[in-house]
Nucleic acid binder design. Structure first.
Lengths: 330, 330
DNA sequence: TTTAGCACTCGAAAATAAAGAATGCTAAAA
DNA sequence: TTTTAGCATTCTTTATTTTCGAGTGCTAAA
């Protein structure tokens, strides 16, 4: 257990380092704790023994260790209130009634990325586990249709369909009716195989140009799944400006992770509430912290996340994300 | 006018530099031209006087100047055939019948980005100048609708609509009918103002819950324009690996340009055919070359582009892009 | 017109030096 | 027992110098 003075000291060191990005030396603190630098050094040394602080080299000042950040977040940090300025910027977007909720989130995260100088990630609703609840077709001309697929969670996607031959509108509506009868309730990522095994055998009995129609629909449905995940990022470059990412190789590494769909998708939040993954706790990169939380729109879950250096302004970020999610839920 | 030997020399220097990224000295060439390094030096000097070559410092080897690259592209370069290996990789995607054309383009550009180590940009159809040709509405439940808007060029978008109160299906279809009557033929980015000035005055006479419906549609249409441009990039990190981008500041500059929607959108091709913009000829960055060309799907134009260092493998890139556009047009 | 030879320039990398910020430790002071 | 002053030590950063080699331009001879 830490003494009060150790806690004070630790808090000062972490917050000073978060702000300055430079190892914190003993002299810089002694005024604030009313004691000599030698005393501070002794205390620093014991905090290091506890694994909360580290040195970058043998005679350097101290920086928080990963364990230190974790301890800070769990036990030391005091949640702040949103500053007036921050609130003002966000409120403008929140109050804009003409924006869809998903766009409100996007804009808010853009603003937050800018305010904090971290990188924002928005992972839209994943429709993998959605069930098809309705399929509709809108004719455009002789050869082109638009198929619209609606899921039980209200997710909608559309796809252009090109017919390889002329087909009567009667045949089209028959096919759509059939698809609706057979496919409703199917998970969206299984639709194409359902088409093959349930619709194909039947369609040939009822519909004249069944080959053309079947092929067209099969190809269209085949791709609904792939477009499902909507990923958005803002402020990629912000994080690259942080002093911890000032080597060419590190920057390239981060940029290449930003670009990797799988890695970014992996940020999707699993747990409820705001979760903080420091360094090796996250799957993105050992040198960063990922803070993420779920949001729900129309029953579909999405994730918003901020990626920054481990030396993140934790309480501010948490306050901001809280504010967003609270407002979304209204 | 250049002598034959000057042309040969120039070609060798440019291609050597494209390949090695290191200034080319006189000694390295003398074997290939059967003369001494002193002779090469004299010729290099005159090519420099013509503005085709540059030195990085007073006693360095030569590199092509911007004007030199331009001359190389216009007069020296001989178009290559696609290598068997390159063709094989692309053919796999082209032949995949289950892919929509736009996805074929996307995948192909991903492959090309990987093969060349440059960055690919795909700017999908811009719907700014599309005219609305049809509006449809699909009810999902009591409170939710999906509006689908189809343009004269076959572009389709959809938007979820949430009704702030209960509205009869009759009212909804009346409204849609009205919208269709009044709005068809309007440019898509003017729809919301048309709604306000043409539909609003009339709707109140015919429809019960006109306020709710009007607001819902107004908000939905308001955003069709913003989602119009589909931008996709592949291999962002590739270009950052090129030796000319090995300073932290330059990398940050490029990444931040990649992130800027306006700058990226500005890449959209204006002219027909494959166009090459070297260094200051492009609006992206003086240190890069942008090669771009239009493609057409269903009457809508898009752009594919490759961004690389000025020291680009011009003939290979041109061959690749040619191959893509030719195959798309079939 | 071409070539050999030579002085010269410059960049990249390695070596050296100097300044400064912190530390740990020890012994004295509180 | 705790705190502090003092000091040698360690290590980073920055600047300076040195060295090495690649490449050039020029001149005079082939």
């Amino acid at each position: 257990m830490l003494t009060d003075r150790q806690k004070d000291l630790f808090k000062i060191i972490v917050e000073e380092y978060i702000q300055s990005a430079k190892p914190v030396g003993s002299k810089a603190i002694c005024e604030r704790l009313n004691c000599s630098s030698a005393t501070i050094r002794a205390e620093m040394s014991s905090l290091e023994d506890l694994g909360l602080l580290e040195k970058t080299h043998i005679s350097s000042g101290r920086i928080p260790s990963e364990k230190g950040y974790r301890y800070y977040v769990d036990n030391i940090m005091e949640p702040k209130k949103l500053s007036g300025e921050d609130m003002l910027k966000l409120q403008c977007i929140m109050d804009n009634k003409s924006l869809a909720l998903s766009d409100v989130i996007e804009r808010s995260m853009e603003i937050i990325a800018e305010m904090t100088n971290y990188t924002a990630v928005i992972l839209g609703q994943s429709s993998k586990d959605n069930l098809v609840s309705k399929v509709e077709v809108i004719p455009i001309d002789d050869r082109n249709l638009v198929a619209i697929i609606v899921t039980d969670k209200g997710h909608v996607e559309h796809k252009n369909i090109y017919l390889e031959g002329l087909v009567s509108s009667n045949d089209i509506s028959k096919t759509v009716e059939l698809i609706n009868k057979l496919i409703v309730g199917t998970p969206i990522d299984e639709v194409s195989s359902f088409l093959e095994f349930k619709v194909k055998p039947i369609i040939s009995n009822y519909v004249q140009q069944h080959e053309i129609l079947y092929n067209a629909f099969y190809n269209a449905f085949n791709e609904f799944t792939s477009n499902a995940n909507h990923v958005n990022m803002a402020g990629r470059v912000n994080m690259l400006k942080q002093p911890e990412f000032s080597s060419v190789d590190k920057i390239r590494e981060i940029v290449s992770k930003f670009e990797d769909q799988d890695i970014v998708n992996n940020i999707r939040a699993e747990e409820n509430g705001i979760n903080i993954y420091i360094g090796s706790e996250n799957n993105f990169d050992d040198d960063v912290t990922v803070i993420k939380t779920k949001y729900v729109i129309d029953g579909e879950e999405g994730t918003i996340a901020l990626i920054g250096p481990k030396r993140m302004d934790y309480d501010r970020v948490i306050t901001l994300l809280n504010y967003i999610t609270e407002n979304i839920n209204k």
